[in-house]
Structures are given as structure tokens and as C-alpha cells.
Design a protein around this nucleic acid. Sequence first.
DNA 1: CCTCTCATTCGACATTCATCGTACAACAGT
DNA 2: ACTGTTGTACGATGAATGTCGAATGAGAGG
Lengths: 114, 114
Amino acid sequence: MPRSQRNRPALVHPDPEEFDVLDILHALSDPTRMTIVQTLRAAPERACGTFAVDVAPSTLTHHFRVLREAGVIRQREDGNRRWTALRDEDLEARFPRLLEAIVTAYENGLAPSR
Amino acid sequence: MPRSQRNRPALVHPDPEEFDVLDILHALSDPTRMTIVQTLRAAPERACGTFAVDVAPSTLTHHFRVLREAGVIRQREDGNRRWTALRDEDLEARFPRLLEAIVTAYENGLAPSR
DNA sequence: CCTCTCATTCGACATTCATCGTACAACAGT
DNA sequence: ACTGTTGTACGATGAATGTCGAATGAGAGG
């Protein structure tokens, strides 16, 4: 029996109909979380520890929860690892072009005129 | 001599090169501020008191400052009124399709599936 | 069985934030 | 001048937020 079904509370993953744009915007307005999303756009699925962000593990867990409860990412358990992926398709179905516009804007703001 | 040039500090309006996507996302992640932006999309310019938001005047001033310092709105003085307008073109030039995608997503989230 | 790794939960902390009431300043009429 | 309107500035307050360290728990592998 995997860890997620024993002592650990089930991971909260809202349905696309429950997505709230304001929650998504808030989730993406933090630099650490935006870096996570940006990283996930390049790699389809990653383990928690493989993100190049400079925060404590418990802080990372916190940021994952914010993203997950907003519907931005999906997490699944696999042995001792927790894999994280973007909910590209769900987001696109609910809010077309939203994620693309935001992440593109963020990446445009990094190098060119800063 | 208008009010803005006397005892009052000049209104802070960042240049488009200084826009920060994360600041913009944070500014738009509040329901009151999103309502303001949505209202401004319909009317090109409005006076402060003409927004259908249910907060105290001083709170409204606070929200205008957040939006203004993020580059979302522009405010100008005219006699006793302060006129507020969206910085459509500046935002579009700096972050193409960003505002459109966000406001559209917000409006889609209001009626259809909620 | 023992240990190491991975990631979480919990509690604490300092900061930021949304909100309001009060006081105030400038303009517009009368 | 006096008065009402418009909107700001300031200070306070309670809630939310980002951060961390310590403790915990489950899995993997010797």
C-alpha cells in the first residue's frame, strides 16, 4: 500500500471547473513558484528535490501545495518520491492561452530589458 | 497650480521597461482590483468614485496605488477628480497578450461554470 | 535490522497585505 | 466666506504569507 493511502492526507487536486483565476494568478506571483512552473514547462515531470530553487525543503513543500491547490500542478506518489507535473491541458481547456501568455511574459521579462 | 504639483507627492508611474510580471500578477490576484481592471476595459477613463466596488474610500486608494505601481493603470489629476485609465498599450507592448488572456480568463470564470 | 534518503507536518517567526476610521487638503459651488 | 464633494495620508489591526528548523514517517538498500 503506497504512502499516499496510509497516514498521509490525500493530495488535493481541484477539478478544472473549480479553478479560480485569482488563485492561479496569486500562485504564479511568487518568484519561487514561477521558477517551478517555468522548470516544469521544459521537463514533463520532475521529482521534488530536482528544482533549482534556493529554499528549505519545507518551504518547497509549501509552494507545491499552493500550486497544487490552485490547479497549476499535479503530484503523484511513487515509492519514496513525489513527482510533479504541470496541468497543461486542464489549464488550457479551462483558460485558453492563460499559462502560455503568463510564462512567456515572465521569460521575456528576465533577460531583454532587465 | 494643480493639486498634484503642490503638497501632494507625484504619482508613481513606472516605465514599461520597469514592469515586473510578478508584480502585475500580484496586482491582478485581488478580486477588488480585478473588478477595477475589468471595469476599465469597458470605459476608457473613469473617476475614482465611479467604481462599483464595496470598499472604503481609503481602501480604494490603496488598490489604485498597487495597480498604478505595477504599471496596470495610469492616473491623472483634473481639478478635484482623479481620472484612472488602463495602460493597455504599454502593457501590450511589453507583455503581448498578457492582459487580454488574464481578463478573458477571469470573465470566463465568472458566469459559465461557476 | 539499521541506516540513509526523500519529503512531509508542525510550530514559530517576521513580513506583507487588505481593511477601516479619522483627519486632512484641494477644488467647486453657492 | 462657507459648505459640500472628492480623494488622500496616516495609523491601527487582524489575517495571510513566506520562511525556517526540528521532528516524523515511509521507502530503499545494504
